[in-house]
Design a protein around this nucleic acid. Structure first.
Lengths: 266, 266
DNA sequence: AATGATTTGTTCGTATGTATT
DNA sequence: AAATACATACGAACAAATCAT
């Protein structure tokens, strides 16, 4: 027992969970029982240990019920890129939208705002910092569960050049791609994506029903370009990491090889 | 105040940090001062609040020194895929290795093991579950700092077919790609990638010097295929999310548009 | 180099609130 | 309504790391 007591207890419990002593979905001993089981450690010490397990996503606690070992949920797969190499690609629509397979999804009508561009958005869209951008924000659901938050930024100039439906508080039925091509002749033929992950902020914690501590979100930023390498738009999508994975396919590959669970734990 | 006291304090402190009252790198008020500032809340309550800020990656605490607002570190960019579309691709080497730009990196000599394949690895490599695989594990560093953990799995069959240097406890100078092509005629022409994120386990927490609570790792799994769609190998790389981002480039795009910081916070 | 003050880390005890069974 | 179990909150003591003197 090298370190702090609560950390030792956490490690021991993690080990016992890993060894199957407490199966997925099962209830852990109560705080009272853990106190007894660990040499009459105080309740606070035991609770500190359980907090670590929560922050590692191993268990979940519910007031009045107990502490439960989380079962690995089957993540939803979002395909960022799917590129059969030889020909250079199937249809463009499949190429340039992050796709969600085998799930119906709903989303709120967009909330539309006009903002002065932040440094990040300005750089992405190659606009002067502080220039106006149109922002369309949607909350998206899968099976009624909160699934992702998406914000797309367009240069305000598009609106003044005729794409005024960008300001509508409604989905554009034919899709923004088709609409921009129709009205402005813009065509997205390339994109650059950035994927990061971080703890959620307060908004995201609330929307995705994550815990105070221990949640993780994946952030996917995409900038789309026209043939002249001019940025067209910039999209930021936030996913809760516990129920999503991102997929890339480059070249000819067989159907998904991913087995449930992780490929490797260390 | 609506919720729990420690949560209210955390939200208030997060707001004050966001508004610049406490700048990046600056020290937050001591626990004693926070107690006084929040209606004589108890020390434990204040500490609970600070824990939330830690788990959100907003602050870092150091025993004996204080609590400090974290400055956004410039992340290292790993390019997973870079594909100029028109031609179908530049050179293969650039296409099929996750690249790290503008940084020299070192890695330990591989630790080599022979294991029975887990369900995940078996599925990825299209082998019967429990069949033998060779596992090469490396710890990788950038600027002397721990940067990523990588494990690559090969079917044991490769060794018996002549690629016995896979078992060497050393790097293969010409690269495993070249070696496998040379000895077995294997050529990786396609790959499927999966990106997920999760809290670190105990090993990762230690190696990357993350905190008990609040750390995030990005997991990048890649399965490489030969022209016959047969899996060749499977690689699992784990990055600490606080200092890494993954990049994808599809088509002709200008040089990196990412500005420091996030494209969008909500 | 040693000391003491400051500041966060760990552990315990206790009481009360709230959701579930 | 009662018992169970986790959540919140306070108080206190000592440990360990850091910093100024």
């Amino acid at each position: 027992m090298a370190g702090a007591r609560y950390r030792d207890i956490a490690d021991d419990l993690a080990r016992r969970i890993g060894e199957g002593e407490f199966a997925a979905g099962e209830r852990l001993p109560t705080e009272e029982q853990l106190m007894a089981g660990y040499d009459n450690a105080s309740r606070n010490t035991v609770r500190e240990a359980v907090k670590i397990l929560k922050s590692r996503g191993l268990v979940q606690t519910t007031q009045g019920r107990g502490t439960f070992v989380l079962e690995g949920t089957v993540p939803t797969t979002v395909t960022l890129v799917s590129l059969p190499l030889p020909s250079g690609g199937g249809d463009a629509a499949r190429r340039f939208d992050a796709r969600l397979e085998d799930h119906a999804f709903e989303s709120t009508d967009p909330r539309v705002e006009i903002q002065r561009s932040s440094p990040g958005v300005a750089a992405a869209l190659a606009l002067p910092e502080g220039s106006r951008v149109v922002l369309r924000h949607q909350e998206r659901f899968v099976d009624g569960r909160p699934w992702s938050l998406q914000t797309t930024y367009y240069p305000m100039e598009y609106v003044t050049r005729g794409a005024d439906r960008l300001l509508d508080d409604e989905e554009i039925p034919e899709g923004v791609f088709a609409y921009l091509k129709e009205t402005l002749g813009l065509e997205q033929v390339a994109h650059r994506d950035r994927v990061t992950a971080r703890p959620p902020d307060a908004n995201e914690t609330a929307f995705f029903s994550l815990h105070d501590t221990g949640g993780v979100v994946i952030v996917h930023d995409r900038v789309g370009y026209d043939p002249g390498r001019t940025p067209i738009r910039c999209t930021c999508t936030v996913y809760p990491a516990d129920r999503n994975q991102l997929d890339l396919v480059i070249g000819a590959v067989p159907p998904s090889p991913w087995a449930p669970g992780r490929a490797a734990s260390r």
